[in-house]
Design a protein around this nucleic acid. Structure first.
Lengths: 197, 197
DNA sequence: AAACTGAACATTTTGTTGATTGTTCATCAT
DNA sequence: ATGATGAACAATCAACAAAATGTTCAGTTT
C-alpha cells in the first residue's frame, strides 16, 4: 500500500465518520460503527488515525474549507476595507450561529474538540488572523486606517473585542437578531473610536 | 414578629448560608444544614426565602456591594475619563479572575445562578452600565470623547467588546497575564479607533 | 391567629452493577 | 514483510436502585 492508497483510505474514513457525526453526534458514533461502514476492523482504523478525537479534528479541519472560502471571498470583495471587515464578522456570526442552531450534533462535535484540543481553537483563530490582517493591511495602504506597526496584534485585538460573536453559545444569548445588532454597534465602536477627532 | 425581625432573620439566613456556600459550595450545602446552623426547622426557611436559589441570589446580591464600591471609587478617581474607563475594566478583570481562581466554590455559585437565573446576569450588566455611562458622560463633557446621543448604548457596546474579560473562565484562557495584555490592547483599540484622523 | 415544626412527597443525586467503547496487540493472511 | 484482524483490556457509560435533598403542608406551639 503506497502513500496514495493510505491517503485515500483516510478520506474514506473521514467521510464515513462524518456521516455518523452528522446523524448521531460525536458521542453516539462508535469506532466499530465507522469500521463496519467501511467493512474493515476496528483496530485497522488506528493505522490511519491515532484516536477517535483525531478523526473528529481532521473532519472539522476538512470542513474549515467552507469558512476559509467564505473569508477569502469576502477579503476579495470590491469594497472598502472597513466594509469588508464588518462583512467578515457578520458572515462568520451568521455562519456559526446558524450552523449550531440547526445542528445540535455539529455543536457537540465542536464542543468536544474545543474541550479536549484547545490548541485547535488557537490554530483556527490564527488562521482567521491571516484574513483579518490582509484586510487591515489594505485599509492602511488605502489610507483609510491609521498606520500600525503590528498588524497581526491589531487583528488579535479585534478578535478579542468580537469574541462574544464568535462563540455566541457560550454567553447564553440565543437571539441572532440581538447578536447582529450588538455586532454592528461593536464594530462601529471599533471603527470610530471614542476619542474626539 | 414585625418587619424588622423578619429582615434580621433573613440576614442571619444569608450569613449562615454564605458560610456554607464558601466552605462547601452551592450544591453541597443543604437547606437542612442551613436550618440546623440557625437551630430552626427546614420548613421555616421557606417563610423567608422562596427557594434555595433565591438564597444564593440574595447572597450574591449582598456581595455585589464590594464590586459596587470598587466601581464607585474608580468612577470618582481624579483621573481622565479614559484612564478611569480602563481602570474600571482592569479592576473588574483582576477581581473576578482572582476570586474564581482562588475559590472554586464561588465559581460554582456564580455558575448556578447564571444558569438558572439569566436575568440576574442582565441586571448586573445593567448596573455596571450606570458606572460606565457616568464615566463616558464625564469624558464627553470634558471634550475628551466624541459626543454621543445614546450613552447607555455606547456603554452596552463597550460591554460587548470586553465580554471576554468579564467572563474569563468561559473562554478557557487561564493566564491572567495574557488576559491583562489583551485587555490593554483591546481598550487601546476602542480608544483610538481604527480610522485615520 | 401567627410562628414554627418535622414528617411526607416528589424530584435529584449518588452509588453500584453490567454493558459498551476506545485502544492495543498477539495473531493470521497475503 | 506488510496489511489487516478481532479478542483482550482498561476506561467510560447506562441503567437501575437507594439515598439524599428541595419543597410543601397538616398539625403543634406560643
Amino acid at each position: 500500500m503506497d502513500m496514495d492508497d493510505k491517503e485515500q483510505t483516510r478520506q474514506k474514513i473521514l467521510a464515513a465518520a462524518g456521516r455518523r457525526f452528522q446523524h448521531y453526534g460525536y458521542a453516539k458514533t462508535t469506532m466499530s460503527e465507522i469500521a463496519a461502514d467501511l467493512k474493515m476492523s476496528t483496530g485497522n482504523l488506528y493505522r490511519f488515525f491515532p484516536s477517535k478525537l483525531d478523526i473528529a479534528e481532521a473532519y472539522a479541519l476538512a470542513h474549515e474549507s467552507d469558512e476559509e472560502a467564505m473569508m477569502a471571498s469576502i477579503g476579495a470583495l470590491p469594497k472598502s476595507a472597513a466594509e469588508r471587515l464588518i462583512e467578515h464578522h457578520r458572515a462568520l456570526l451568521d455562519y456559526t450561529f446558524t450552523m449550531i442552531d440547526e445542528s445540535q450534533k455539529i455543536f457537540e462535535l465542536a464542543q468536544a474538540i474545543g474541550r479536549e484540543r484547545p490548541s485547535y481553537v488557537n490554530r483556527r483563530l490564527a488562521n482567521e488572523r491571516v484574513y483579518l490582517s490582509s484586510i487591515l493591511k489594505d485599509g492602511i495602504e488605502d489610507g483609510l486606517f491609521a498606520p500600525n506597526e503590528d498588524i497581526n496584534r491589531l487583528a488579535e485585538m479585534i478578535q478579542c473585542a468580537t469574541m462574544k460573536f464568535r462563540y455566541p453559545q457560550l454567553h447564553n444569548c440565543f437571539s441572532l437578531d440581538t447578536l447582529r445588532r450588538e455586532l454592528e454597534g461593536t464594530m462601529d465602536l471599533i471603527f470610530k473610536g471614542l476619542i474626539k477627532r
